[in-house]
Design a protein around this nucleic acid. Structure first.
Lengths: 77, 77
DNA sequence: CGTGTAAGGAATTCTGACACG
DNA sequence: CGTGTAAGGAATTCTGACACG
């Protein structure tokens, strides 16, 4: 596992880096588009790669796509 | 600034990754050996590079060096 | 000197829900 | 559908101090 895929960043930092709200970030997870790890205390941990994905997801949503469609795209179908 | 120098990791994760206690990590900062960023709420943020440094510091301490000497070494003197 | 610990407070995150449109 | 928000609780982190040796 490289540095880009290591899930070590908490949602507050992800929010800062992406410019999105925690609500949006959690929603993308709810929609099965991203899969952060969890600490023992249930706290979400993201990787730099996740951050890339999140920004990509948001861009696509802005472009008019829906999360269900994005999920299909990720599945490669 | 690359991914390795981006300070986004909190002390709990650093503790897990290095195997050191938060006490040790904070002490190295007190001794001016590492310089984490701070969030608005005073929470420390470390980079992957910091994690490397921390492990190196601990190894050197185990080897018998003192923090003052390590500081000199970092300063290149 | 480097590290452990108990103490109390502050910042951060979590979940489930109601709201809008 | 995607996102905002108020609510209460839980996990995380912070500082300063006392302890040991």
């Amino acid at each position: 596992m490289s540095i880009t895929t290591k899930k070590v960043i908490q949602i507050g930092v992800v929010s800062e880096l992406t410019g999105l709200t925690e609500r949006q970030i959690r929603y993308y997870e709810d929609r099965k588009l991203i899969f952060p790890d969890r600490s023992k205390g249930r706290v979400r941990k993201y990787s730099f790669e996740d951050i890339q994905k999140i920004m990509d997801i948001h861009t696509k949503l802005t472009d008019g796509y829906q999360t269900v469609e994005l999920k299909r795209m990720l599945a490669g179908t």
